[in-house]
Amino acid sequence: MKAADTAWRHTLAKKPPAVTAPAAPVRLGVRKTYKLFIGGKFPRSESGRTYLVNGDNVALASRKDARDAVVAARAAQPKWAGATAYNRGQVLYRIAEMLESRRDEFAAQGVPVAEVEAAVDRWVWYAGWADKIAQVHGGANPVAGPFFNISAPEPTGVVAVVAPASFLGLVSVIAPAIVTGNTVVVLAAGPQAAVTLAEVIATSDVPGGVVNILTGNAAETAPWLASHDDVNAIDLAGVTDLELATELERAAAGNLKRVLRPGDPENDFTADPGLKPMVALLETKTVWHPKGF
C-alpha cells in the first residue's frame, strides 16, 4: 500500500537527511512493479516492456504473453472442470474471504469501498451458484423411447475476456466464467487493481492457470486472442471502440468462437446479473442412456 506521491523519482529528488543527526533511520519504501499473472506466477512481460500508470511501473503485455497465458489456461482447464462443483464453490468463497481482508489495499488504489464490498458479495453470490447451475440449467428430458435422456451443462473451455474498466466489472466477468469450470485469460483495464486482484486469487487456492491476468493495451493483444484457435470463447465486455469490437468478432469467427458482444458502456454492474453471464459460457451435453429391459 502506498500513497500516490511516493514515486521513486520523487524520492530520489529529495535531499538526503543531514549527516550529523544519527536520529531515527529513514526507511526506504519497497516499491512494487506490477507484473502479469500467468499460470499462477507473476512474470514480467516476455517483451520486457513496461508503462507508467499513476506513477507505478506496470508490465505491458505482448502477444507472446497472451500466447503463454492461453497455454497455461488450456493446461489448467481439464482439472478445474473436473473438480467437484462443491470444491469450486469453496474456492470462490475463499476468494471472497481474501478480498474482504484486503479492502484497505483496494481503497488505497482508489477503488471506492462500496465497490470492493459489492465485489466481495459478487464472489459469494457466484460461489453459491457453483453446485446449483446444473440443477437450474440442465435436467432430465422426456423422450419417446426407452432412453434416460439428460442434458448437463459443461464449461466451454478457455475464455478470453476483455475486462471492463471498473473493479466490480472485472470481478463480474471473471467469476461467472470460472465458477462453471472454464479458465480465463483476462485483458485488464485498471492495472493496479487487477494485479492486486491477481494477488488475492493467487492466495485463494485457485489452481495456477485458471485465472490469467494481462495488463497493457487490449487493442494490441485482443486480436491475437480473438483469432487464437485454442481459445473457445471471447467476452468483449470491456471493448468500447465498436470498430475494434467488429474486427475482433470477425477474427473470432475463424474458429467459430463464442462471442459475447460488448454491452452498453453504461452497463450497471451493481444490478443482479442473473444467470446469463454463466449460461453464455456453457455448452449443453445431452446423453441418451439406454434403459435396460
Partner: peptide
Amino acid sequence: TKLTTGHYAGPDY
C-alpha cells in the same frame, strides 16, 4: 499454420 495463416493454431485442429 501460425506462419501461413497469421494466427495461433490450436491442438484441436
